[in-house]
Amino acid sequence: MQTEIVISGFGGQGVLFAGQVLSYAAMDSDKHVTWIPSYGPEMRGGTANCTVIVSEEEIGSPLVMNPKAAVVMNLPSLDKYEPLLVPDGVLIANASLIDREIKRTDLDAVMIPANEIAEEIGEKRLVNMIMLGALLAKLPVLPVEDVKLSLQNHLPERHQHTLPLNYEALHKGAEFALQGETAKV
């Protein structure tokens, strides 16, 4: 069994880094993992995405036609990946930058105002960690605590002081995703 996750947004939203954080956590948990970015002119602005596959066994293709989960940080990413998700897939969408509803009804979807939550925390650049936290709450691929540990283990020394804010962002994201669930019940 493998779990495929696409993380997509504008260049600069931390899309590739969020995927790497997930990949480090998978590696540290002795799972197989691949991370592959879009590496075209996107790097110079426009949309960027990466695909992360986490698996218990050797991974073949690092790309899939129909991923299990998508974290979309802007409208073009939602338009692209909403139709591609597998039935009952997980969709985490950034409500701050997306002004339409999610069309599919078979998805486990969360519209999360990630930019507003980031501003509440006081650091706009945490949008990616908030959305990653929401993903982990919905997708049982890795526990949030493992991801926190990997951040601590792999974040360069000069960024270590940002750990508490990153942890807070992960938790706020997860909290929001689960709140939505309780509200539905």
């Binding site: 790497q20 990949s23 590696m27 197989h32 993992v33 691949t34 991370w35 592959i36 970015p37 590496y39 690092p62």
Partner: peptide, 10 residues
């Protein structure tokens, strides 16, 4: 190929 070059794996 570009996929091997750009991909990250443990």
């Amino acid at each position: 190929d570009g996929s091997i070059g750009q991909m990250m794996e443990p």
